[in-house]
Amino acid sequence: MVKQGEKVRVVSGTAVVVRGNEIDTDRIIPARYLKVVTFDGLGEFAFRDVRFAQDGSQLDHPFNRPEHQGARVLIVNKNFGCGSSREHAPQALLRWGIHAIVGESFAEIFAGNCNALGVPAVRVSEADVERLMSIVEADPSMTVDVDVDAREVRAGGLRVSASIADEIRESLVTGVWDSTAALLANRERIAETVSNLPYMSGFSA
């Protein structure tokens, strides 16, 4: 877990590649594992139905391979995390060990959920995703740096530029990705906004 208030500038570690476009949050964590009142312990259910057969036997999936145990960076393709808004998806990935995600594009709610956990989800070009994937698949021990501050991803000799929305980058590098405190600090302005919304007074003011 990323500690509340922690500045997330660079995430470094070995990486794991999960190929495929439109990997939805039902695939990241099937709905039957959402029947919980805490996020603790969700790590083992990450990609459950593509990691294990219905009889419980292991399938060949990057998350099952010994060389990827301990990986901190996940590399994916397009529209990763589409579908259900379940925060259980990034929670499961984080609890499995993933602290940064590099992909061609992310679904919006998923990206927001990652940010709220202090997990950068950065975008790189299709060609650069392919380069990074090839490097990691060829050498799973390779360290990948996801540099949020400098907006780049580095692996071996490769250095590619990464995009991340200005405000998301700012929230990560300054350690305010957990927004509750900042929102609560504006109590007076909240009250002022409320006073200007006719429905908040039942249209009777």
């Binding site: 959402l34 029947k35 009142v37 805490t38 996020f39 808004s85 379940r86 925060e87 200005d166 405000e167 998301i168 700012e170 929230s171 300054t174 305010v176 927004s179 900042a182 929102l183 504006n186 302005r189 909240i190 002022e192 906004t193 409320v194 200007n196 919304l197 429905y199 908040m200």
Partner: peptide, 29 residues
Amino acid sequence: DLHTVDQLSTGQDQLFIGLHLIHEVTSPQ
């Protein structure tokens, strides 16, 4: 615009939410 409370230091908007709906799956945590 009517619901914007402030701009946060990150550049994001602080948006007031007029109605919040909750259900059993995503709220306990």
